[in-house]
Amino acid sequence: MKDWEYDEIFEVINEDYNEYLTLNRGYRYAIARTSDEYINLGRIEDFIVDTAIGEILITHNKVFIGYVEGIPKRLGMFNPKEAEGELTEEEIKDLLQRINQVIDGLKNAEIDYNPSAEKR
């Protein structure tokens, strides 16, 4: 990972999400904006981003169907071997745990079918 440190991605995503929440447009807007800011950073970085976004989502009462379907599908493609050399062994282990928690959390999430990111 050339531009980011492992923990830094989690931190900046959470900071930005919380900053977007302060705009008082709701959590759907905040998560949509945050997701949009961090797409296509790199192969391994994208797994970390999806994990960080997923960790936020599983704290919500309802999760938009697009996230419930998309994030686990993408995270299911994570191959720890591909991360060797970019992440430490400890970071890979941590990421695998977090990925599993996100996938399980999204399986049990109440689904929201409304695509609007605007506050209701």
Rank of each mutant, 00 (worst) to 15 (best):
L57W: 08
T34N: 00
G70Y: 10
I111W: 08
G105H: 07
Y27C: 13
G105N: 02
F78W: 11
D112G: 13
T59H: 01
M1R: 10
G70T: 09
Y27Q: 13
R25H: 15
L95D: 04
L21V: 12
Y29G: 12
V102S: 01
R74H: 10
R33A: 11
A30C: 12
K62D: 14
I39C: 00
N40P: 03
E90R: 08
A117L: 12
R98G: 04
E8W: 00
F10E: 03
E19G: 13
A109E: 05
E19P: 15
N61E: 15
V68G: 11
I48Y: 00
L57T: 05
E86V: 08
E19H: 15
G54Q: 11
W4M: 02
I31N: 06
G26S: 15
K73Q: 13
I53N: 01
L106K: 05
D36V: 07
R98Y: 03
A117K: 14
F47H: 04
D3S: 01
I48H: 01
T51H: 06
K81R: 06
E19W: 14
T22G: 09
N100Q: 12
R98Q: 02
E15S: 09
G66T: 08
F78I: 13
K93T: 01
R43D: 07
R25S: 14
I53W: 01
W4D: 01
L87V: 00
V102F: 02
D50R: 04
V49K: 02
A83D: 07
E11W: 03
M1S: 06
I31T: 12
R28L: 15
I53G: 05
A109C: 10
V49E: 02
R25T: 15
T59R: 02
K107S: 10
A117P: 12
R120Q: 11
G85S: 10
K119P: 08
G26L: 13
L95S: 00
A83V: 06
E5K: 05
A117S: 14
Y27P: 14
D112Y: 08
E84F: 04
V68L: 07
N79S: 10
N61L: 10
N61H: 14
I92D: 01
P80R: 07
Y20C: 11
K93P: 00
E84D: 06
N61G: 14
T88C: 09
D104P: 05
N61D: 15
K107H: 09
Y29F: 15
G105L: 01
P80G: 07
A117R: 12
S116R: 11
S116Y: 11
K107A: 07
G54P: 06
Y113K: 05
E84T: 07
V49L: 04
N18H: 13
N108S: 11
E8H: 02
L21P: 08
L75I: 13
G26R: 13
V68N: 09
Y17A: 11
W4E: 04
M1Q: 10
T34Q: 07
F47I: 03
E69F: 12
I56D: 07
M77Y: 15
L57K: 04
I71P: 02
W4Q: 03
N18I: 05
G70P: 10
L57Y: 06
E69A: 13
Y29N: 14
L95H: 01
